[in-house]
Design a binder for these strands. Structure first.
Lengths: 195, 195, 195, 195
DNA sequence: CATGAATGAGAGTTCATTCAT
DNA sequence: GATGAATGAACTCTCATTCAT
């Protein structure tokens, strides 16, 4: 029975993701979720008490999956340059993605939940994890002589801010792939020795 | 007549700004505005037909004021370095501001109005104006030998993305003044010759 | 001054007539009248306290005009058959008219003011006047041997009900000119001797 | 489930009928219906989205019932004269009815919905059905030598216009039973041979 | 577990009517 | 007389949330 229940939970999470991707966070109502899932109003409340709870569950699952994904890919890499390129390629995907994109919903969630909550922590941890990974890549790369980088930590922050900026510009004013490529190239060329 | 009316319009714009700063865009209702202005429901509709209209008016006025402000300050500057520092100082203020801060409301507006509208154009124009100004500063600075900068346009974009990223990080996960300072320093130090 | 005032009153009545013709009675608001007249809200209230008052004034004027009109035409007629045809021709015009048509507004007014009021009396008097005129025409015609008509009063009522029925059918389900002609012919042919 | 729901639907239709009979169509609000039904605002919207929908449902049911009613009575009749008298008796009831009377509401609906819609069609079909039935009665009656009637179709129209005229006169200026009787007699006496 | 009818709070919007100028 | 800004009541419609079945 627990299994069946879990399946339904998963089902709701998956379906609801579509709505959040389409409407952001604030404009999604429990009714929207009920409708896309084709379940009963009361049924939804058995699993989630609010749109916030559903959204939290969606993000949790997403982070898990991404984590596994990244871990797998990282182990296959050899040089730090490769790693950096991989990292940026993933980010590029996030910046340009249209479908299944929870970026806007995520920002809206953060905007309306300034006070620290579980979901907020989730998102922030993800961001910090990005900085950490990037810092390590840069540190290692500098040690190995692949990169020129005096202050890896600061450089990592700098890159992350740029990526975050591109992400939001992409969602609000539109960004072409070539614009993103140029900017990513600019970042990389500032690091690579003998560019 | 017109004068008195304009005063009331200004009054509403000013007061409503507080609500948008506090609640973002999507969660502001006409009722909120009515209440903070202490006017009647119907009274508000004499001036604005929706929260979107009020918000547009707020941004319009803000941009005017900022424009004048900046113009004054720019004429007082002598070197491009001074100009750059001034520009970044203004941006720092925007990144860290807490009161009267429409950043979140602006993002929420853009998120929920993907299709081009007047207000959206206003905001995008402002962003583009930032890039233009910055590009000119970098070009001039490079010519005068103040900066090291091979591709001013790209560099300007890069800086703007970073600033945008910091802006949003500041509103979502919080950013200390020293974090902002370090990042701004990082930007400047990448440009100045003989750093 | 009284003259000027009267002019404005007349102006309002004329303009407001357009609105009532277009929207009926119930759906006309004081705002509608203010707008079509391009006068101030308060200004309208100096002359009329409600849509009902405006409507009453419109009907009053209309009846006056119609009365004069008819009186003129009646004096020019010689035979009762001519008079009857004239009468029916006028009715036909009323049945088929599209512009300046207050039929619907009039019915709506009566529907929502079941209790006797001045305006109601006006309308009813007009209807009764129609019966009276028609009765006289039929009586005279019968005396002169133009018509076959045993009970002129009842016949007059009968014709008026038919006309009223056509009027409302015309406004609700649509009636072509030929349909009206056929019915009028049917009425006349039932009266004329040696049809 | 469906059964219970249908019961409530029927309950709303019945109760709402009272309001429409009392206030016509245009002046009935969803609030009025909510109040007479003693249900919640949202509850009403589960069944009907507008006053127009409720009204449509009322008329639909009414027409169904009337249809059955008439069919039963018609089979019991033998001569065409009997049928005609029955038909006129039913019409008399409609003309004089006070309770449960949707005449005014129906006219108001038609006035404010000139464009063809489902409800309008319903009403017009009912009117046309009346003409058809009457025409058949007159045709048969003429064939059997019961009536004198050269053009049954036109005569049927003529009678229907009179009835419609009486209906509206009854609702607007008032009509006594004896007035109606006299007029019905006038109609019949024009048809019966050896009058 | 699951359903979906029902409730009621609350947002948007429109106007009749007043009143200071 | 004339104006039009201002008020507040009234209406429409949507949802979060509950609860009997």
């Amino acid at each position: 029975m627990g299994e069946k229940t879990d399946q339904k939970r998963e089902y709701i999470i998956t379906k609801a993701g579509e709505v959040f991707a389409k409407k952001g966070f604030l404009q999604v109502t429990m009714k929207d979720i009920v409708e896309i899932c084709q379940i009963s109003r009361g049924g939804l409340y058995l699993y989630f008490g609010s749109t916030g709870e559903v959204f939290h569950a969606i993000l949790s699952r997403q982070l898990e999956e991404e984590g596994e994904d990244l871990a797998v890919k990282l182990t296959e890499m050899k040089t730090m340059s490769d790693l950096l390129l991989l990292f940026l390629k993933e980010q590029k995907k996030l910046i340009l993605q249209k479908k299944e994109d929870l970026t806007i919903a995520t920002y809206e969630y953060l905007f309306s939940h300034t006070a620290e909550d579980e979901t907020g922590k989730l998102i922030k941890d993800q961001f910090r994890a990005g900085i950490t990974v990037l810092t390590k890549i840069l540190e290692q790369g500098a040690l190995r002589g692949e990169f020129y980088c005096e202050d890896p930590k600061q450089e990592a922050c700098s890159i992350m801010y740029s990526l975050e900026g591109m992400k939001i510009c992409s969602k609000t004013m539109g960004l072409s792939e070539s614009q993103v490529d140029r900017q990513l190239l600019h970042i990389v060329s500032g690091l690579l020795i003998e560019e």
